[in-house]
Structures are given as C-alpha cells and as structure tokens.
C-alpha cells in the first residue's frame, strides 16, 4: 500500500479529477458490497404477495418475479461481481506477470515461445473465447462460478504478461540493472528489488482498468445465461431475468444495469486517472 502511494504520488490522487470521481465510485461500490448484510435484506427471501411490485419506500428498486427485494439483490450482486472480478484479476495478474517477467528476463528461446503464445491470445477476440469456453464448461459440467473464473483467466492473463514483458525488456537495458548484475546480485534479488517495483505502476493501472472490464465480461456472460446461475444474485443474470418484463416491470432491468455501468465506469475513470498521473510523473523524470 505504501509503495502504491509512493508510485502514484499519493497526494496527486485526490487532485486528479478522474481519479477523484473514479475512486469515490469504486469505494462506494466496494462499501456497498462489503456491508451488504447491514444495508440490505435477505436477497433470497421470496414473497409472492409482492410479486413485481414497483419501487417504493419499502423496496427502493421494487420487487422481482418472486417478490424478492430487488435492492437487496442488486447490493448482493455487487458483492458477487466484485469478488469474482477481483479473484479473476488476481489470478490473471499472478500468472501473467510471472510469465511476462520470465519471458522478458531470460529472453532467448523462452521469450520467443512465450511471445508467440501471447500473440496468439491477443489475436483471438476475448469475449468469443470466453463465451465458447464457459459455454463448453457449462453445457458439459453445469455452470459454476469456478467455470466463469477459469474461462476468463484463460484469456485475461495475456495483457499482464505482455505489459510485464515489455517493462522487463526495457529495464534490462538500464544502467542500474547492469550495475546490480556487475556486483553479483542474484536474479531473484534483481527481480524483487528492481524490476517488480518499477513494473508496479503500469500493472496497477492495468489491473484497475481490468477489473472494470472483467465486471463487464461477467455481466455479459450472466446476461447470456452462461455465467453465475440463479438464485445467486449477479447483475448480468438479474438483467437477463428482467428483460421479459421490460414492458411491465422495467425496474428489474434498469437498476442492475445501472450498477454495472456505474462500477465499470468507476474503475475506468480511476484507471485513466492513475495512468495520467503515471505519465506525468514519467515526463517529470
């Protein structure tokens, strides 16, 4: 955490407009998700007497087809989306950065092979592979959250690998690495002491933007009925179940979508802002 503040010149974050708005949106969504049990009611509790009730002071977002409180389902949906998105992002980051660093650091044939693999993954439209893969999983094994995670990580690690590889390649040529090597530093020392801290900035920017993207991907899969299955509340899937009622109960569609848009927008803003700061810092240097 300390490192992050240092990289982005912590003080600048609240000064940057994009960052400020983005960060507040992201924090808002995270808080909603984490305090869901305090804010919301039981998202599973059905009440057929309240079926398709419109928004009111008791049910802020109205009620769904089984009379469940939509507000609670949307809030718990934030939880689902965030947990899954962050898990995917973490796995991808771990795998991607490792592969990228190895490729860039060792070079030679390893780099050639990994470079090719990265090329391959970059040239297949991600969402196509995601749908195909989740589809294959879920039409064969049945859908589970792990299928979604696995399928998205499968395509998602590449951007991390590419960016890490690029950074490592450029750092390798810098003097301080040469010096370290000259005085006999071990590979692992160079990696942890020099390369990782330097790569951290761009990777954090990427990760922020990435979480937004993943939330969108999960929602898309959910909307297609391929993602996380009911009764677990998930935004895309809530939207999917509401689209039949667009004429009679548009709120079932409206609110989950609004939250998807809001959170993706938040992460994108924050990512952009962080990138701005990083770029400006580079210019200073």
């Amino acid at each position: 955490m300390f490192k992050v503040i240092e990289i982005f010149r912590g003080i600048e974050i609240p000064k940057n407009n994009l960052c400020r708005i983005g960060l507040s949106v992201v924090l808002f969504i995270i808080l909603l998700g984490s305090f869901a049990p305090l804010i919301a009611k039981d998202p599973y509790e059905t009440n057929m007497a309240k079926r398709l009730e419109s928004p009111s002071s008791e049910h802020f977002f109205g009620a769904d087809q089984l009379g469940r409180d939509l507000f609670s389902r949307v809030i718990y949906g934030a939880r689902t989306s965030l947990i899954v998105a962050i898990t995917i992002s973490a796995f991808s980051m771990g795998i991607g950065c490792l592969i990228g660093a190895v490729s860039g650091y060792f070079g030679g044939i390893i780099d050639d092979v990994i470079g090719r693999i990265i090329d391959v993954f970059l040239s297949i439209p991600e969402i196509v592979v995601n749908i195909a893969l989740v589809g294959v999983f879920c039409t064969i094994y049945g859908s589970s959250t792990w299928n979604v995670i696995l399928a998205v990580v499968f395509t998602n690690w590449v951007s991390y690998a590419r960016i890490t590889r690029g950074i490592v390649l450029s750092l390798k040529e810098r003097e301080f690495i040469f010096c370290s090597k000259a005085i006999g530093a071990k590979s692992s020392w160079i990696l942890f002491k020099h390369i990782i801290p330097n790569a951290l900035g761009p990777i954090i920017v990427l990760a922020t933007l990435n979480v937004g993207n993943i939330i969108l991907t999960i929602a898309s899969l959910g909307f297609l009925g391929l993602g996380i299955q009911p009764p677990t509340p998930e935004w895309g899937q809530l939207l999917n179940s509401g689209k039949n009622y667009i004429a009679t109960a548009p709120w079932i569609t409206f609110f989950p979508g609004l939250f998807i848009a809001l959170s993706v927008f938040g992460f994108n803003l924050l990512g952009e802002g962080l990138r701005d700061i990083l770029e400006r810092r580079r210019i200073y240097e």
């Binding site: 937004g212 969108l216 929602a219 898309s220 909307f223 895309g236 939207l239 689209k243 667009i246 004429a247 548009p250 569609t253 409206f254 979508g257 609004l258 998807i260 848009a261 993706v264 927008f265 994108n268 803003l269 952009e272």
Partner: peptide
Amino acid sequence: SLLGISIPSFWLGLILIW
C-alpha cells in the same frame, strides 16, 4: 468515450427498446 466502453451494450439496448 469512457461511458461508451463502460455501459453494457445489452443494457443500453434494453433501455432503447423500452
């Protein structure tokens, strides 16, 4: 341009339908 990549097209589509 940020909204364009943040707003899910399926939601926008449904809103336009509505």
